[in-house]
Nucleic acid binder design. Structure first.
Length: 307
DNA sequence: TTCTACGATGGACAACATAG
DNA sequence: CTATGTTGTCCATCGTAGAA
């Protein structure tokens, strides 16, 4: 098994992390942030689990497509010789129950039926493949990755893989006969190239520069560090690395703002002298202009998703 | 161990470029 | 013109790696 497209923190989650350390969130945004964070943890767990897939196959993670003006996302795809496996990973924790085809948490709040979500993406995926001249057999699975998940009134549905079934499901996957050829790589490339991009900025809470807390955040625990750049969590960082990381955060949060020495000095809230900031900027980036309109050219690592 | 040299840092200040 | 922001230079201080 080969991972053709690894999983990264999504731009939106990245932005939310940057923002969350610097401002309070309205309750809806906070929930959304926590859900994304939890979902990502689940996907990471799934990635660890999927390392044991030993068949000749290709894995593509986090695919985002648009078919018929509808956007859908797939957590993970495994291309084998005869079958394209689609995995929707859920990191649900605790007790849930089913009434008919309605899903509830034990406290009684209703959640979106993940099976509908799964069927929907299978339909769309099938169509996407057909549009591109493929007619591959698709199998979709809903993977509950968290061992502390339980579903009362669970139906007998082979598309659902509960935590206790993960090992046997893996065995089953590994018994899938599979020998890939160039066509499969072509299919994988097609899928990667047919992706769509969504602006990560649309669904963020409102924020403005003046109301964000300034300073340098520890990349691990996301709390502010003091002038020593030694975090309470034990993480320690070289000055230039810390400043460059902070510039990166600023760049993500304010893609249209010009990067100047003073701006970054203020953003890092005097953790380092303005002279040091300038030196680090000058050592790492091109400078354009002079005086008031002068600024550094800091490349942004994503260019299709901006705005 | 102590000493030394060097690079990184930071303060002060003058010179320069541009917006308004 | 002034205000703002950047650059370059000079110089003192600090921490540390390597020499003595």
């Amino acid at each position: 098994m080969k991972i053709l497209k690894p999983r990264f923190v999504s731009p939106e989650l990245k932005l939310l992390r940057f923002l969350h350390s610097r401002m309070g969130f309205p309750i809806d945004d906070l929930r959304r942030f926590e859900n994304l964070e939890k979902g990502f943890k689940g996907e990471q767990q799934f990635d660890i689990w999927s390392e044991d897939i030993l068949i000749d196959g290709l894995i593509l993670n986090d695919l985002l497509f648009e078919v018929n003006n509808t956007v859908f996302q797939i957590d993970s795809v495994l291309i084998s010789q005869g079958t394209l496996f689609q995995f929707e990973v859920k990191n649900y924790e605790g007790d849930y129950y089913l009434e008919g085809d309605k899903w509830f948490t034990l406290s009684g709040s209703t959640i979106r039926n993940p099976l509908h979500q799964l069927e929907r993406s299978e339909t769309m995926l099938k169509q996407l493949l057909q549009n591109n001249g493929y007619n591959m057999h698709i199998e979709s699975y809903l993977i509950f990755i968290n061992p502390n998940f339980h579903l009362y009134n669970a139906p007998i549905n082979p598309s659902i893989i509960f935590p206790t079934q993960l090992t046997r499901f893996m065995d089953k996957l590994n018994r899938t006969p599979s020998k890939l050829n160039g066509g499969h790589s072509k299919l994988a490339e097609t899928l990667v190239s047919k992706q769509t991009f969504q602006s990560p900025y649309k669904r963020l809470p409102n924020y403005d520069y003046n109301r964000l807390e300034k300073g340098i955040c520890c990349p691990h625990c996301r709390t502010f560090v003091d002038v020593t750049l030694k975090c309470k969590c034990g993480f320690e960082e070289a000055p230039s690395a810390a400043i460059l990381r902070s510039i990166e955060e600023f760049r993500w949060l304010f893609p249209d703002e010009k990067i100047t020495t003073n701006r970054i000095y203020e953003w890092c809230k005097g953790n380092k002298s303005i002279r040091t900031i300038r030196r680090i900027l000058a050592n790492n980036f091109e400078y354009e202009g002079y005086g008031k309109p002068g600024h550094y050219i800091v490349p942004i690592e994503f260019n299709r998703a901006v705005r």
